Computed example of a mutant assay.
Amino acid sequence: VADLGKSKVKDRERKVSMPQGKCDSIILIAGRDLLQLPLEGLSVFDEGTVSSVSREFSLQMLWNRLRKEETGENVSFAGAAAPTPEPGVLFLLNQGAVVVDPYEEAQGAEVLTPVSVTREILDRFRDAFTMRWTGHLGNAHFPSQAEWEQLLGSCQGFFFYGMENFLSHILVERLAAMNLEECKMVVLLDLTRSYESMRRHLESSERKSAPQLALEGSTETAILLSLVGVRSIVANQWWTALQDNAMRAIVLWENLLAAGKPIGKTTRLLQRKGADELPQTWKDKLALPRLQLQGSERLPFSLNLVLYGLPHQAIL
């Protein structure tokens, strides 16, 4: 009996480790409650050769995404400055849709606003990528529900960068009725707030039921986008600061477009290094206070952005 007791103690003290052998991409299949936690911060994922950690809602959902990839075609676009892609990844056509702060509610330094950051990104990559992207930048023209649906339904990659949550801008019931199987990647840099955006959201929330409001959560949004056919979704888990989303936007597009990295590796870079991945010119321009954070202080900031679905989608 004594020996059995010692064995149990040793089992409890045994360190959890990754399986032996090369393990490049990890897909976590977890229940909704567990998905509320920053699972990507577990120390076990710092071992070995893990280069991406993504989330999935069920084995059935994962099978559906993989089945669509097997029946689809790999596509590419020969850009003037297109990066050399990493082997073994799928590529998106250079057809993207962008909606950035359609109410133009961001308040703060001009350099940190979604419109300013996105305009600089679009200008930098115009020749190779963004010249063929469509969408709405700022409030010069506010998209109607029909225009939202047209953008989502006609693109292979969709980028939303704005205030409040994504589903406060588009009717949930209209999105749920769509077929987005051609949309391989959705990036949502939302969950920032200003006085103007909060007032608008409160006014619109008064006309919605509790179940409708519950669907606007981060996890619920990812589930809904997955059900209508999107292969990979990148989104914030929690409310965040304007400057943090500016940093995420820059690091995402520097790695997805300039370096040609797949979305899984790009998201993992943000989770592990955060603002350290910013080019020096952007560090000087943004002067992010987060650059001064060390150790565990950085975790809520660096682990906010997570990936749902397939990690190997890339832009070419």
Rank of each mutant, 00 (worst) to 15 (best):
D3Y: 15
L112A: 04
L35I: 02
S116K: 11
R290S: 03
R298P: 00
W238H: 09
I27S: 08
L202R: 13
V117C: 03
F159L: 14
M247P: 04
A177E: 14
S43N: 08
Y103P: 03
Y195H: 06
D3R: 15
G264M: 13
E206D: 09
I27M: 13
L213V: 03
K285T: 01
E254F: 11
V228S: 12
N179Q: 11
L180N: 14
A97R: 06
R32P: 03
S194N: 10
G295R: 08
A241G: 07
V251S: 05
Q280F: 10
D3L: 15
E206V: 08
E216S: 03
R193F: 14
G5I: 14
Y103K: 09
E182S: 15
E297W: 07
T240P: 08
R207H: 13
F45N: 02
L305S: 10
M178L: 15
G108A: 05
P102Y: 06
L286N: 00
L286P: 00
P211W: 13
G48H: 08
R174K: 14
S296I: 14
I170D: 01
G309W: 00
P87D: 07
E120T: 10
G72W: 01
V9C: 09
L269K: 04
L278R: 04
R174G: 04
A246H: 09
L215I: 02
